[in-house]
Design a protein around this nucleic acid. Structure first.
Lengths: 209, 209, 209, 209
DNA sequence: CATGAATGAGGTTTCATTCAT
DNA sequence: AATGAATGAAACCTCATTCAT
């Protein structure tokens, strides 16, 4: 108790990439506790910082969440736009896109981000809107055009492309939430890649003329 | 002290179905604010009760949420078991099941319950577990058997039934979250019935031998 | 330590005049500590309440201060307007007004309110403005008219009435701040009544034609 | 490691008068925000220093305030003592003294210092006491003697000198607070010189035998 | 059964102060 | 001497829950 040799304050100075470290800590705490239940002090501790230091990088809790969503989501958008270019057959494109996304759903924390967005979109609509506009409303029209092109070229039979996109994407959502919601509760792990591979196969066969 | 016969009128507000009224109030407040942001007083007010009276019916906030999920979810289970019986062709069964569920996703508050479960399952695992065990793990094996039977009878080609179920169910999840998460943010409304009808069509064609 | 007979929570219910009790408590704490240094919990304790109960009556700390100023200040205004009526000689009116105000400066907490207003008017301009508009800018023009009338009737010699008012009022301010600022520091007590009586005497003689 | 002769230029910013620069910065920030609301960082920034450097000159915030009051107040005292000497008629002395002080109230930041002292004397009694002892209790007895001498020489009629001093000084206080409290709130500017000139005129006439 | 005033634990945020560089 | 990142105490305010009436 009176041991004074212990450095009671380990004042660290690592301007390395504090924001990124904090975001990583925030993600893991948010994922474990949910946004409301997460305490800023826990995030700080996990980032190896004091409570106050957090506020040097992010002005408040909500901004932290926004930054997290923004960061984790950045990649998606670019992927989407890259996809729209090609002029080859549609089916392989869809399969490639699906495989890439499946890998992300399987290996990254994206599913937890998605769960956060779902959970907090009521209390913090800016976050929900951000996701809606930057992810959902980027990806969906892109896929829609792809499907429409498939129909136009005779690769697919005539269906409503807007609805078809949701047929295609639904299982991704299911996989993501399975991972982030049900697996932590003890549900068996999902083999997302296998699931999606078969799903795309069914989907593409189902669209055959 | 005062004339008690007068007071009587006040109490006549059908004290019968108080719990149900409270649950209805809770659902609408939870749906609007999310669980954490919902205040017990708001629920009480909407149920036409005082804060204190709430506690005569539900011991605490979490129990209220549990009861809500239990109640809203009860129907699903029975539907599921009823389905398992029939011995007819599988495709019409699936279409019927899908149509029924689409109607619920479109017309009831079920999507909001689902969103609540997703949002709160970390902070209150009992709720997540309850849903997992009573809804998800009831419905999925049932559908799985159905698909397996279709394969056995030659109605479907050979696929992994466990994965196929998720191909089938994913768009329901997507529809539910679209309604509960994105529509409140201004996204265009989804015609769930049309979407699901086409989805099942694609899905069943995709499973043809 | 394990004595359970002690009522640990003395939940009181005295809807008597809680707001007034709270304001009294607030005044005494603000007067002792100043606004910023005053802790809501101290005010609560002094009012015989818990921290939270305070917020049932006043939504926040600033509102509490505003209410205090408003209440303590209410009387002044009516006094001012009553004064403007009479048509008699001006000197006795001034003497009467001065005597009344001296009594207040001597016997009430008004000086402490004034000190609070002065101290907080930067941080909370609404409070300063309220005081300026409802007290200062009510009293001063009224006195100005009185003096102007005295000049018109030949009771006083020709002076600038706007400045003369400040000659008259200055010592009140000095008395108030002496009581609220210097007496608590150990300065000798001021006999405000005697001071003001002599002051008005000098002032009126100084205005003789 | 790097060329140090280059660095030298940076340091040449007259390190001589840092304390004075800091005090000037502190005054302007305190005047704008009040003591509690003033942030050390703002003072540092305005003084062209870093937060940390402030602490090389002043050990803490309160000391800074004390130093400010001490500095701004220094002049007063010497003026007071100089005044006590002369042996001429009292009235011209008073008029001269009043004019000098009016100029200060009009043109310097003294009114803001006074307001600070008033606002903080509860929370930091040393500051109030310092002002009381070094300013108030220096000036008042001096003026008192002056008035007593006027009475003794027959220049003034017999009044209570202690009270008369407050008749004389009150309007200064009023002017100072008008400038520091009410003008920032939008009140019309006060012509302190004219006000005081007339005030002294009234006061002296009011004291005529 | 019902009320709503009262409680108090708990979490976010601020900012004076410290100290490694 | 100087910097500014880091610390952590402190205080406001919220709201689930209790209980006297």
């Amino acid at each position: 108790m009176t041991d004074q040799s212990v450095t009671k304050t380990k004042r660290q100075r690592r301007p390395d990439d504090r924001p990124a470290e904090i975001l990583a800590a925030a993600l893991s705490v948010f994922a474990k506790k949910g946004f409301s239940q997460a305490r800023m002090e826990d995030i700080a501790k996990r980032a190896g910082l004091s409570k106050g230091a957090l506020y040097l990088y992010f002005p408040d809790k909500v901004t932290l969440l926004k930054a997290l969503v923004t960061q984790a989501t950045g990649g998606q958008i670019s992927m989407a736009s890259a996809m729209a270019q090609a002029e080859t057959a549609v089916s392989p494109l869809i399969m490639h896109f699906a495989t890439t996304l499946a890998a992300r759903a399987q290996d990254t924390e994206l599913p937890f981000i998605l769960k956060l967005v779902i959970a907090e979109s009521q209390a913090h609509p800016e976050i929900g809107k951000f996701y809606l506009e930057n992810v959902v409303l980027q990806a969906i029209p892109m896929m829609e055009k792809l499907i429409a092109r498939g129909i136009a070229t005779g690769e697919f039979r005539a269906v409503n492309p807007a609805h078809a996109v949701k047929s295609l994407m639904g299982p991704f959502l299911l996989s993501a939430l399975w991972r982030s919601v049900f697996e932590p509760l003890g549900a068996e792990q999902l083999d997302v890649r296998a699931l999606i591979t078969q799903h795309v196969d069914i989907f593409l066969k189902g669209l055959r003329p």
